[in-house]
Simulated assay, not measured.
Amino acid sequence: MKVSVIVPVYNLEHYVGPCLEGLVRQKTSFDFEVIVANDCSTDASLSVINSYLTAYPYIIKVIEQRENKGLAANMLKLLSSATGEYIAYVDGDDMALPGKLQLQADYLDNNPDCSMVYHESEVFDSQSGNITGHYVADYYNHKYIPDKADITHLIRYGSFFQASSLMLRNHPNTDKTVDAKCKIILDQPFQILNAGYLGGSIGRIDKILGQYRIHPDSFGAKTLKDYARREQVLRDQLQAISHGADFYIEQSCIEQGQAHYYLATAMYFLKLGEISLFNKYISLSAQTDWRFDKRHEYLVENRSDVEGCLRVLS
Rank of each mutant, 00 (worst) to 15 (best):
S4K: 01
L12H: 10
L12A: 10
Y15R: 13
G17T: 10
P18R: 06
N38S: 10
T42Q: 13
A44Q: 12
S51D: 14
P57D: 02
Y58N: 14
N68Q: 13
K77Q: 15
A88D: 02
A88E: 02
G92T: 04
D94T: 05
L97D: 07
K100G: 03
L101W: 01
V117D: 00
S121D: 09
V123P: 01
Y135A: 09
D138G: 01
Y139R: 02
Y140Q: 11
P146N: 00
D147C: 11
A149F: 07
F160Y: 15
Q162I: 10
Q162D: 08
L166M: 14
M167A: 00
N170V: 02
N170P: 02
T174C: 03
K183Q: 14
I184P: 06
A195Q: 05
G199R: 04
S201L: 13
D206P: 03
Y212C: 14
I214Y: 08
K222W: 07
L224T: 10
K225F: 00
K225R: 12
A228G: 06
R229G: 09
R229F: 14
V233W: 14
L238S: 07
D246T: 05
F247G: 00
Y248I: 09
Y261K: 15
L263Q: 13
T265A: 10
K271C: 13
G273H: 13
I275G: 07
L284W: 07
K294C: 05
K294Y: 03
H296D: 08
H296W: 08
E297A: 12
V300C: 09
R303I: 04
V312Q: 14
L313W: 10
